[in-house]
């Protein structure tokens, strides 16, 4: 399979890439390419101009400053997995990256590409919601900050302009009284999630002072199960309360029926992923 014809430009800097986004009609950024190139081969996408951002140093690297971790948008999945900073301070991101696609794809696929692409099956958007991440986005007028919460508007629809680039992702280092859970149901290696749920939980004594529940692939975009979160916040979480939260998760899901299952099945699997993630998060926050 061969894509339509396009012009190729290897960007040397973020500014260079933004300039090309402004000047070339319908230009697309080429990150890892493992969503874009297959779509182009199937002719679902036919951008006339590709801007390769693989060789821009400012988009690389993972740093810890104070309690903030900054992750360059072009960091690959395997770089996330190998990062000692993330293993120590943001293990949710490491565990999530391990379940993305397969080893070869993880060598090319990037966290930024996964976030901005806009496919509800991508794993990082829900993880970003659970982590309350902040996105650093650059455009012709400079940089701006954009919370993950509010970024995902719909399928292939995000709060980012045509001439803007996601430069970096900022997340807070996990604290001792916090715990994470991550469960993703998939039919086989490399498949998108039937349903997935990253959870980030904060304990104050025995009570849950804060919880963020992300949901993957059960709506037009990544969403949070806010009703379920509200049920759990301020409470001492037990299995009866988790059951009530699970009911709220099912109500929050609106998955499309496809070969991975019916809408009802996917909603119930999302609830099960949430149950397991909350249990894991609780256990980790306590220890």
């Amino acid at each position: 399979m061969i894509t339509s014809q396009f012009q190729y430009h290897k960007a040397s800097s973020i500014e260079d890439a933004i300039q090309k986004l402004q000047n070339e009609e319908d230009a697309k950024l080429l990150a890892g390419g493992h969503s874009l190139l297959p779509m182009m081969k199937l002719r679902f996408a036919e951008p006339p101009y590709l801007i390769d951002i693989n060789d821009i140093p400012e988009l690389q690297g993972i740093d810890l400053q104070g309690d903030t971790i900054r992750i360059g948008a072009m960091t690959t999945e395997n770089e996330l997995i190998a990062s000692e900073i993330l293993q120590q301070h943001c293990p949710l991101l490491v565990e999530a990256a391990k379940l993305v696609a397969d080893p070869q794809v993880r060598n090319r696929g990037t966290i930024g590409g996964d976030i901005v692409h806009g496919d509800p099956g991508n794993d990082h958007p829900a993880v970003m919601l659970a982590l309350d991440a902040n996105f650093i986005i650059q455009g012709p007028d400079g940089k701006r900050e954009q919370p993950a919460n509010g970024f995902f508007l719909g399928t292939y629809w995000n709060e980012i302009a045509e001439d803007e680039i996601l430069v970096a992702i900022e997340v807070k280092a996990q604290k001792d009284n916090q715990g994470f859970g991550y469960h993703k149901l998939k039919r086989k290696t490399g498949d998108y999630a039937v349903a997935g749920s990253p959870v980030m939980l904060t304990l104050d004594g025995d009570k849950c002072s804060d919880i963020r529940i992300g949901l993957t692939n059960v709506a037009p975009m990544a969403i949070r199960a806010t009703e379920a979160e509200n049920l759990l916040k301020g409470q001492e979480i037990d299995s009866a309360l988790i059951e009530k939260a699970a009911e709220q998760v099912i109500a929050a899901c609106e998955p499309a029926e496809d070969l991975r299952g019916s809408s009802e099945y996917k909603s119930h699997m999302a609830a099960e992923m949430v149950r397991r993630s909350i249990q894991d998060a609780l256990q980790r926050a306590r220890s």
Binding site: Y8, H34, L37, N78, P103, Q104, V105, N107, R108
Partner: peptide, 11 residues
């Protein structure tokens, strides 16, 4: 690094 050469441009 192992990559899938059907999803990397020759350039």
């Amino acid at each position: 690094k192992s990559v899938k050469s059907c999803t990397v441009l020759a350039v």
